[in-house]
Design a protein around this nucleic acid. Structure first.
Length: 273
DNA sequence: AGAGGGATCTTCT
DNA sequence: GAAGATCCCTCTC
């Protein structure tokens, strides 16, 4: 039974010449919006994307935990096929160390076809499919097999396109998504930014479809909550380590840990109880 | 507001 | 064969 379904799926994938629903959504988006009154501009108006500052190789070349924290407040930029730019401020990340980290895809130092990007130069994207339907995006850091998972973004620009990309991937007609629902989760931000397997192993310092820009207001140490990672099970010491980082009080974070925040406040004398 | 289950398929054992 | 760095919908309190 499942076998038959699988065959059918493969067949339909061949026929439609695309196995990624998100790409279909993207194409629909870029062809249906914009009306048709504007000329195809991309070919003749090649814009300089590097006029503004961009995060370079030396930024990504830092230890995993350090990079995971340094990402907070920085901006992810995605240029859609139609030229529109999506901007999102990184507000939540997770560090996945190599070898020793039992929760990492690179545990035991094992390199496979899937996780190869984790072993590539810092700043390389590692995109994998999860549960057969969703994608998650990581950025390779310094350290063998280490990478940082991007968990949540605060949408800054291109919110209409994000909403459209998020909406087209659901079944029932739902109410319009609120701003905070666009990118609060690793697979949601991939949907909103049109990031799929085609972005695996791309270089953030070289690619013309995706890159990072330094944020204006970067958080201080006291603004960063360090707590446990999400979705890796309860077994083992590695599940308990504080390797998830998010901006305290930011409403675009996917999972808030109030207990840890209270403890932080008590330690730092930031509460007046 | 929180709990529970279904979707869906690639990857590695 | 089984698991999986998730999301969404539905049901119940």
């Amino acid at each position: 039974m499942p076998r038959k379904r699988k065959l059918l799926a493969q067949l339909s994938a061949l026929q439609s010449n695309s196995s990624f629903p998100q790409l279909d959504a993207l194409e629909n988006l870029s062809t249906t919006t914009g009306g048709g009154c504007s000329p195809k501009s991309s070919k003749y108006f090649v814009t300089e994307k590097k006029n503004s500052s961009q995060l370079e190789a030396d930024f990504f070349n830092q230890p995993c935990v350090s990079l995971a924290k340094s990402f907070l407040g920085q901006i992810l930029v995605r240029k859609l096929p139609d030229g529109r730019e999506l901007w999102g401020r990184i507000v939540e990340t997770e560090a996945y160390l190599g070898g020793e980290d039992e929760a990492s895809h690179s545990k035991g130092g094992k390199q496979t076809q899937r996780n190869a990007a984790m072993f590539m130069k810092p700043g390389t994207l590692y995109v994998y499919q999860i549960y057969g339907i969703y994608f998650c995006v990581n950025v390779s850091s310094q350290g063998e097999g280490a990478a940082v998972l991007l968990r949540s973004l605060e949408p800054l620009q291109g919110l209409d396109a994000m909403r459209e990309l998020r909406r087209t991937s659901r079944k029932a007609p739902t109410k319009q998504l609120k701003d905070w629902q666009l990118c609060n989760g690793p697979s949601r931000l991939c949907q909103a930014f049109g990031i799929d397997k085609a972005f695996d192993q791309r270089d953030l310092t070289q690619d013309t479809d995706v890159w990072m820009v330094p944020g204006q207001d970067l958080p201080g140490e006291e603004d960063v909550v360090a707590t446990t990672r999400i979705g890796i099970g309860n077994r083992g010491e590695w599940a308990q380590k504080p390797l998830r980082f998010y901006l305290r009080g930011n409403k675009f974070v996917s999972v808030v840990d109030k207990k840890t925040e209270r403890e932080m406040a008590a330690r730092g004398h930031l509460s007046c109880s």
